[in-house]
Design a protein around this nucleic acid. Structure first.
Lengths: 353, 353
DNA sequence: GCAATATACTGAAACGTTACAGATTCTCCA
DNA sequence: TGGAGAATCTGTAACGTTTCAGTATATTGC
């Protein structure tokens, strides 16, 4: 009864507006259809307490029926909320790219939310800060995911100073508590060294990530310390990093294997470059599993498939993506909440099959 | 003189507005600073002819100085223009993912434009039409890039009917002229068969993409026809496609190699799955290059690195990304222009090194 | 029976932009 | 000299949303 009365009132009030009934439904359309004011509709849709229960249901029903979807630009203009997560990526990123799974992981987490994922690239010759500044200055996202984290990362400092929600793939070492997801590369290195020790390998080389990245330290730290415990020695291999292009790695590996102090065990801190390592080892005339053992990260389950004689540790980038998305979302939700920090500790080295 | 006079006028006119001087500069800020109206500023920035040359320069100078950047939400709300390209991806996509390069290619092309790239995922169990409908209905992008194109693709029909700019990775066969970038998989298959014929291989198997996808037809077409020309026969291998998970492919390959009519040549229509093929061949006790030859796509230059005895054809996904981005942009720019259609024809099969 | 208060709704304004429909000044020609 | 027309600028409205400051009606307390 009440409802009906109001409907009559309002519809006659609103008829001046000449509803075209074309295009996407907006709040105005809903207001017209329900006979309510735009404000009421807006509030009813977000379950505001000052709207009658019946009205709320009615509005929501109609909205669902006609497939109302809030206009993102409208919301964004009014509130500043973009419903966007920006993932900043280095386009000169490594071989073969773990990136697919990373992106899929993020998407997966975002799928059930109103958030969109935008990919903001930067190339090696640009300033990594540039896309970050852009996002913050133009407010083009509600949160940022960064990767290739450094111990003293200007992006982390910048974002923290401004209180802008973000999560990093990798840790820092600058006394700032921030959200991150990281793979425990120290443990990875330890496990790898230990395995090679078990196999009787005495002289090990490590293909590490570039020194600037935090996980270089972690990996080398674990490597060196564990080397010490087992009385093994290092075959220096720092002329190249897992960031180099395939051919560089292959060439340097050949050179490494031909040195006097060549290693009998190699550890590779990434997936793709392991292929180049293998190629180099074999090109130098050595045989995997006999002359030298290799422990590598296995990001796509392809490595051990073609070279069953290598030892692998699995790293899950899809999980990293999901985790980081979750972390940013909760940062956005409550900026003062404790940042999500997850360290994934590898449990085992998978032996050759 | 003139300019100065106007500045005085306008600034006194505008002083009612109490410029806070905080936050991002907007047109209003610029208007205040230059002493012009916001309309004039807006037009000056986009080089409208009805604005005096001097004014235009002045406005643009000030804009550059204070780092003015148009508010995307404002533009989008007013004009409907989003400056967004949406790339719709299947998150259950294949092994190892060529996706990184694809995305990087798109980003690369978009970098110098005002466009952002948003990734819209769908999983195997969802309707592939869903993200497409979402984008079109909510107008959340100016253009779409789709992949995994089918001969009679409902997405292509839908987008064409609505005149929505898009480009497809792959062709269709439905009498619709649309923008695409495609790798010539027919030629790929022909080259592969020819190479295997040269090697004396008589009985060939093809690991094709799923039958639903257009390039399945192309690849199989070229394969069968060329098979005929050389008087070779086919070893049926349709129980599995290059979309299957690694382990399925490996198992089916073992089974294939143990059959009576086992192949002495195999062609693999994708990069990742080749690893599984190799594993299967070897698990069945055969040797690559001796018992059987393999021709595969090489998307990341990793395959031949660890298995120098295989023959590869390079497919460049970064180029595909760049191309598709270019195609959508030009579609957006002029909807009636002839759609960009590019077929990349592979020239050679790279022999083992 | 009347004020105070709670309940359920409302219009107007604002976010930043562009399109529309003028307004003002200047130039040039009859 | 006067008026048409070009050149250059202007304010207002609108896109769809949320917030602010109400208004009207119903309910309560005394």
């Amino acid at each position: 009864m009440r409802a009906a009365g109001r409907v009559m009132d309002k519809s006659s009030n609103n008829t001046g507006e000449e509803e075209a009934e074309a295009g996407r439904p907006t709040l105005k359309t809903l207001a017209f259809m329900t006979g309510l004011g735009v404000t009421t509709v807006s509030r009813a849709l977000k379950d505001a307490p000052e709207i009658g229960a019946e009205t709320r249901k009615r509005v929501q029903l109609v909205a669902r029926q006609i497939g109302y979807r809030p206009n993102r630009a409208g919301v964004r203009l009014r509130t500043g909320k973009t419903n966007v997560i920006s993932v900043v990526l280095n386009t000169t990123e490594q071989i073969g790219g773990f990136l697919s799974d990373f992106i899929y992981g993020i998407s997966e987490r975002l799928a059930a939310t109103p958030y969109h994922l935008v990919v903001a690239p930067y190339s090696h010759n640009n300033d990594p800060m540039e896309p970050i500044r852009y996002v913050v200055e133009t407010g083009s996202a509600d949160g940022i995911i960064i990767s290739r984290t450094e111990p003293n990362d200007p992006r982390v400092r910048y974002l923290t100073e401004r209180g802008f929600p973000f999560a990093a793939h990798g840790r820092t070492a600058m006394g700032i508590e921030h959200a991150y997801h990281d793979f425990d590369n120290e443990t990875f290195a330890r496990l790898a060294v230990r395995r090679l020790a078990e196999l009787g390998r005495r002289r090990l080389a490590l293909l590490a990530p570039p020194p600037a990245l935090t996980y270089h330290q972690h990996m080398r730290g674990g490597f060196l310390d564990e080397l010490d415990r087992h009385g093994q020695s290092e075959a220096p291999f720092s002329s190249v990093s897992s960031d180099n292009i395939i051919d560089d790695i292959r060439r340097h590996t050949i050179e490494l294997m031909r040195r006097t102090g060549r290693p009998d065990g190699i550890i590779c801190g990434a997936g793709g470059p392991a292929f180049a390592l293998i190629a180099g080892i074999e090109a130098a005339g050595f045989k995997l599993g006999r002359d030298v053992d290799l422990v590598a990260k296995e990001p796509f389950n392809l490595l051990q498939l073609v070279r069953p004689e290598i030892h692998v540790v699995e790293e899950d980038f899809r999980l990293a993506g999901r985790d980081l998305a979750t972390a940013v979302l909760s940062s956005i939700d409550d900026r003062s909440a404790a940042p999500m920090q997850r360290l994934v500790v590898p449990a085992e080295v998978i032996a050759p099959r």
